[in-house]
Amino acid sequence: MAELFKCTPALRSESGTSGSTPLRSDGTVVDIHCHVLCQQTEQLVQQLGVSGEAGTMRFASEASRQAAQAQRQAIHSQLTNVETRLADMDRAGIDLQVLSPAPNQYYYGTDPDVGRQLAARVNQTVAEMSQHPSGRFLGLGTVPLQHPKLAVEVLRHAVKELGLRGVEIGTHVAGKDLDTLALEAFFAEAQSLGALVFLHPAGFSEGQRLGQYFLNNIIGNPLESTVAVSRLVFSGLFERMPDLKMCVAHGGGYLAAYPGRMDHAWKVRHECHACLKHPPSQSLKKLYFDTLVYSPNQLAHLLQEYGPERLLLGSDYPYDMGDPAARMHIEALPNLTVSDRQAILGGNALRLLEVFKNEF
């Protein structure tokens, strides 16, 4: 097996310039959950009249809409400027960021030609940032999932031609669930390529009761992931594709809290094991989860449920629902071995993304 890459990132010095410094003794720290905004795509969307509104805004109150607008302005530089991003990474103790599109740049409602154009621009932006001379970025692209055959082509191009490590996808495709047979070829291609599929919600699709108090993000995002992954599990996808690499944002939503109920239903209900040979919890343990759960107790539960080999540091940079202290929360976990801590901080991500020394 090829040797996994041990990076020596170009860290910013006190003078503000970039310089190569030796890797810290505690290993490479990788943030799996970091967003970027493709400005060229935003411009094309405006020209074409395509809706780029995030799902969390669909049912949002006026107060939440105003707050979202203020946040977009406040974090614009972080979403688009590499130097701003590098400085923030240094402050947070992050060596590598895995870049993924802002969730409002899925555009799953577009026709094939527009969908291809928008995905191409997003992927090119992520690829260019990933090639920054600092060597501190890896990239995940996007695909037009609403057109499954085209999604396979775009995925293949993103990985083989642009050098991206996988793609970020939403939890549904313009209202259609991910367990549809039409998407089987997409997941099969991701498995064949060894590409990571990063599952990231954009609010609950049926959020009529979640408009006030920002609930369609607070409750809606983890609920949406829970529904999407549960459907994939009971469809038998992870049994049919045991090597599919999927990471679920926000600690997997509520999946870690109640897997026993899923297993019980599988035992007693025919419709729950019609497509699934083994208990749902076995499929859940094939997934990866980021650590964005905020609470040390919740993080410890996630660790207990799935083990250190399935957790990846994630901060949701640069949004206000992100956690700039994500690394500190992992380092503060009690009774964690040095090797397990290093695995969660970065080793698992490097292995999952197949980052090898001979690539650099």
Results as ranks from 00 to 15, higher is better:
Tyr306Lys: 02
Gly252Trp: 02
Tyr254Thr: 01
Glu239Leu: 04
Tyr258Lys: 12
Ala70Cys: 12
Asn216Val: 02
Phe198Cys: 00
Ala332Arg: 11
Ser235Ala: 10
Tyr258Ile: 15
Gln78Asp: 10
Ala202Met: 03
Gly346Tyr: 04
Thr125Asp: 11
Met129Pro: 04
Leu155Asp: 03
Cys272Ala: 15
Thr110Ile: 10
Gly307Leu: 12
Pro324Asp: 08
Met89Leu: 07
Lys357Glu: 15
Lys6Gln: 15
Ala74Gln: 15
Ala120Asn: 13
Tyr306Val: 09
Ile32Ser: 05
Met262Arg: 09
Leu150Pro: 03
Leu37Ser: 10
Leu232Lys: 02
Ala182Phe: 02
Arg310Gln: 14
Gly19Thr: 15
Arg58Tyr: 00
Ala228Gly: 08
Pro112Gln: 10
Arg121Pro: 00
Ser134Lys: 06
Lys149Glu: 15
His35Gly: 04
Ala151Glu: 00
Arg269His: 15
Glu354Trp: 07
Gly236Tyr: 03
Ala188Asn: 06
Gln117Gly: 09
Glu83Pro: 05
Glu168Phe: 01
Pro318His: 03
His147Pro: 03
Ala349Gln: 07
Ser283Ile: 02
Gln66Phe: 04
Asp111Ser: 13
Lys285Phe: 03
Arg85Thr: 08
Glu305Pro: 01
Leu336Gly: 14
Gln97Thr: 06
Asp113Lys: 14
Leu353Lys: 06
Lys277Tyr: 09
Lys277His: 10
Ile218Pro: 03
Glu62Pro: 04
Ser283Leu: 02
